[in-house]
Design a protein around this nucleic acid. Sequence first.
DNA 1: CTACGGTCTGTAGTAACTACAGACTCAAGG
DNA 2: CCTTGAGTCTGTAGTTACTACAGACCGTAG
Lengths: 137, 137
Amino acid sequence: MADHVSGKRLQRAELARHTGCNLETIRYYEKTGMMPDPPRTASGYRVYDDAHISRLRFILRARELGFSIEQIRGLLELVDGGTQTCAEVKERTEQHLADVRAKIDDLKRIEKVLATTAAQCSGEDIPECPVLEALAS
Amino acid sequence: MADHVSGKRLQRAELARHTGCNLETIRYYEKTGMMPDPPRTASGYRVYDDAHISRLRFILRARELGFSIEQIRGLLELVDGGTQTCAEVKERTEQHLADVRAKIDDLKRIEKVLATTAAQCSGEDIPECPVLEALAS
DNA sequence: CTACGGTCTGTAGTAACTACAGACTCAAGG
DNA sequence: CCTTGAGTCTGTAGTTACTACAGACCGTAG
């Protein structure tokens, strides 16, 4: 059989450590509804499981990728499913998709410029730096 | 000859309109040193040129891509050149490059999931949604 | 020359966290 | 059993990165 590991229960500091999240941010995300209110022990301590870890990691990474709280809320609603029709989901998914692809394109341009810069910059003074020109157009 | 267009002088509201930036954010970026203090008219009005537009666009897009103010400051220092040695520039560029590539990878994973979701979601109820699983690992 | 729109500064408000204060819980040690 | 220290609880206050507003000044069209 599989091991018993997926039943692990964590408390808040452990969840923070597993995800790299600030301790207080977890509470903030619960207060604002991004994270579900976790079950509590008899004495009121929050208990988390693997699903909480996944969801929190997703939120944190999405934030690092420049999605706003509202956008992430939208993505999570897709995940959470529920009240929306399939047509709505499809439309919103494609909206997000366009957004993501635009980000990828921009990042690729930045990547190219940085790679070029790094290559050019092999011992000499930096040349007329083309970073701004490449990115700001 | 080339045209005379590159000598255009803008004031703050025009710069905001050209870049989609909030009017006040421009002043904020000047106060915090991301944007240079622009020249002023005799009566104290700020005047901007094309270089300001480029730099501001870069900052705005970098923010949308999830770079922190400090990271952008780092990127701009590469552009601004000045006091640093070529070795420093190279190292920092490669650091940024790794960061950018990680973002691209993550966004591509999100893209894939969203595309799959959009494809699956063509008239039926949403299946067990794999978004979290794909992203949170 | 005045109306009205744009700009100036400083300051106050908002979003998304982040830190702190004081009370409670709980496992370990004596 | 009792203490002690580390972890948790709540509410609230502080920080960062903007965003909006107030009151005074500028500038140009009628």
